[in-house]
Write a protein that binds this DNA or RNA. Structure first.
Lengths: 126, 126
DNA sequence: AGCAGAATGAAAACCGTTGTCGTTTTCGTG
DNA sequence: CACGAAAACGACAACGGTTTTCATTCTGCT
């Protein structure tokens, strides 16, 4: 139920970047954990269902996960190192709401992700 | 080099919804076109590279495509029928820009998708 | 027409993800 | 502490969307 599930959660808590399931699995194994890939997937799914982690699809369709605070928020993601900052934006919320209403849409949801290169990666660049 | 590539583009132009590659392939076959799935994929990729179509990853990781006008814009997508409206929002652009700068990020890009149920699907619902 | 190079597509390879199912662990109860 | 049911685990197989391979076909050029 939760010795390895807790371990997955801990691994996610180690840093603030979006990681793929396989990456997480590899890191855990490297750290000496005895856990199967299947369990990592299931744990991540459970955590996602419980809104304990955010899920993001990368451009190539791979799912990436990240521990996150509860509540509605968006992400500012470094496209090089994956580091993520949680941001919020009232402006976006109201804009999405208004635009949808104007077109007769109801039951509105939205996804917003901002990508860029973080200050550290800029300095570290060749 | 483009009898079937043109055909793919035409198929996309038929309506304003995001369609998966397989869906597009099936529709074309049903319409009497003699085209392979591989070619559909390749055509879509070429069109995407040329910024002739927008690509969107659905929650289950499947890629969906839609003909779109040039230039930066976002989408308001009906989660039932897939119908899409192109929208733009200066408010979002400036917000993304500001938030990124505040955190020292450069070379900023962003994705914004708004989902909802369109007026027609609301009426048609049970 | 003849030819080189690009495009096509059937089938196989890929790869992330999910299902299967026998084994192990956890936990409540006697 | 021992038992037994129920949940979790994990090696492996299966799945499904996408990409690659490679032999064949088509295009545009001379």
């Amino acid at each position: 139920m939760t010795r390895q599930r807790t371990a997955v959660q801990d691994e996610l808590a180690r840093d603030s970047a979006f990681r793929s399931a396989q990456e997480i699995h590899a890191r855990m194994r490297a750290a000496g954990h005895r856990i199967g890939l299947t369990t990592v997937y299931r744990s991540l799914q459970a955590l996602a269902d419980a809104d304990e982690v955010d899920v993001l699809r990368s451009d190539d369709g791979e799912a990436t996960y990240r521990a996150c605070s509860a509540g509605h928020h968006h992400h500012l993601v470094c496209r090089h190192c994956g580091t993520t900052v949680e941001v919020e934006g009232r402006a976006v919320e109201t804009w999405a709401e208004r635009v949808a209403r104007e077109h007769g849409f109801v039951d509105v949801a939205h996804t917003v992700e901002v990508f860029g290169t973080c200050a550290r990666c800029v300095r570290g660049a060749r």
